[in-house]
Amino acid sequence: MMDRQLVEEVTRMVVERMGEKKPEARARLWIHNDKAPSYKAVGQEREEEEVGGKAKLSPFPKTEKSPSSRTEETEEDSGDLKELIKKTSARIGVGRAGVRPKTKTWLKFRYDHAAAVDAVFGQVDGSLLETLDLFTVRTKVTDQDTYIRRPDYGRRLSEEGEEKVRDACRKRPSVQIIVSDGLSSKAVDENLEDVYLSLNQSLEALGIETGTPFYIDKGRVAVMDHVGEILEPDVVCLLVGERPGLVSAESMSAYLCYRPRIGTIESERQVVSNIHRGGTPPVEAGAYLGSVIEKILDYGASGVELVKKEG
């Protein structure tokens, strides 16, 4: 057993030495609980967007900024950073906490990801379809897993769907409008009403007649070929939910094709994409689509063919 006095002596010596001077570190380490971190979290100034959804966040105590001349520099830097942030919807300049993203950033990311997943697996609001007077048919897809695994099933109407379309729809219209959830039911929920009504108004103004519109559950883009085969319209316009991403899970596309039939190649299709509140406004897209359809009818071609004919 060591002498108690000796222990105290050694302890005091050690403490004194430690106080004298800190050993110089060879590598600069960031100490996560250091009160005055030498790094600065870029984008501290960025206003944190409220994370959507139901998760409630308790406010975090704000860290004091170091009261040195660096403050001004930080503000200037963040001014430049803001310019960069404006140019992209990517998650840049969001700061960090140690090696991880900040909690808010992380939750926002998780929320957006979850929204994307929900959009793929969700169902379109039935009352919306009712209001717009769209009846529903199915593709050969029976459940969502099959939809993901067998894209070819999403490209054909089911037998009863085909029959229903034959019975209920006017044949050989100039324009056949169809709607499908595709990969985002949310896109349909959010944008369909405005795009659809605006498109109809624009076609009416141009004096272009339309057929009997309907909704296709779990369809893929090329399902328009099957519809073209059955109803033989001049132009099919398919309003379909786009594959969701982390920026928007509710983006819609309008696919247009001149006389699509089974076997139509992709280059003959034409698309107006990015229709959502953060992209092309839905009502404006609808108004614009009318003039695109007019052009397709005028030239009797769509997609690459149309570009060629236009010269």
Partner: peptide, 14 residues
């Protein structure tokens, strides 16, 4: 500034 002129103009026109 917002991209809404065609839809508003068209509504008015019709």
């Amino acid at each position: 500034e917002r991209d809404l002129a065609k839809s508003l103009g068209q509504s008015l026109h019709i």
